[in-house]
Design a protein around this nucleic acid. Structure first.
Lengths: 139, 139
DNA sequence: ATCATTGCAAACACTTTGCATACGC
DNA sequence: GCGTATGCAAAGTGTTTGCAATGAT
């Protein structure tokens, strides 16, 4: 996707498309690895050496607030970010650390309430050993 | 449940039933509120003023490791603990902060693999507005 | 006496905040 | 020139670690 299209998506959410913001969103679009703040910071720093972690935090907060991206918490300690805002599940491998998208079409996602409570968000994730690591362990 | 039974449950998991450990497990058994370390610490401190947070952390780590309790991460920042180790979902109210157990009998819980990945743990949680808070908002 | 448990204080890691600077229109 | 975005440094918060002191058998 080119910079012009990215800029448009950002602006459509009512966010000023500054250079840094474009770069950060572009990174999320091109790396579906559910990166942490630090991963994003380290990578974009290579291009923009003056970038600060604060800007990454600020930018991701704005993106979240405006619904441009979503966040997931599988690791207890750090938040991960996802360009994908549609409901889906995640699988985290305890061996390699990779996080995979799991496009579940469970009826759960369609529920509006549960046990009388009104659902606003729902999160489903798995932890285990991924396909690739299983293969490595067998050989 | 009396102290003798609690002591037995702890010992059955291969854990020395020290006074502090018994108190902490007892607290979890009697408060199904999915408390944080701090909630447990503050409450038991009333009875045992010399208790330190480190001991609460240590104890909960041992309990987790031995499979006596489970932990959940709904709040991004802090871990919550659950006496219940059987698979079930949780609902967190964004108004009152309460966390409710949701005894789902979804087929998800029965799966051993998903998309070729081997499942070891699975977590399902919801965020929204609970029954009680909905009622309050209407009146 | 010995070994495990406990507790303090410092260190850590992630995140937020306050405020001054710099940038873009 | 003005207003927002950025960046630094410090503070905040939950958790872990190192090590000494305490406690139980």
């Amino acid at each position: 996707m080119n910079t012009t299209s990215i800029k448009k998506i950002i602006m459509d959410k009512g966010i000023q498309p500054s250079h840094h913001r474009i770069k950060i969103y572009e990174y999320l679009l091109n790396h579906h690895t559910h990166p942490t703040v630090d991963m994003i910071y380290k990578e974009i720093s290579k291009e923009i050496p003056t970038l600060s972690r604060t800007t990454v935090y600020n930018t991701l907060s704005i993106f979240l607030e405006k619904g441009l991206i979503s966040s997931i918490t599988i690791d207890e300690n750090e938040v991960r970010y996802d360009y994908n805002t549609t409901p889906h599940a995640h699988f985290k491998c305890i061996k390699c650390g990779n996080i995979y998208d799991i496009p579940l079409d469970t009826k759960l996602f369609k529920k509006k309430t549960i046990k009388g409570h009104k659902i606003i968000e729902q999160h489903i994730y798995f932890k285990g050993i991924c396909k690739n690591c299983l293969k490595k362990m067998q050989s």
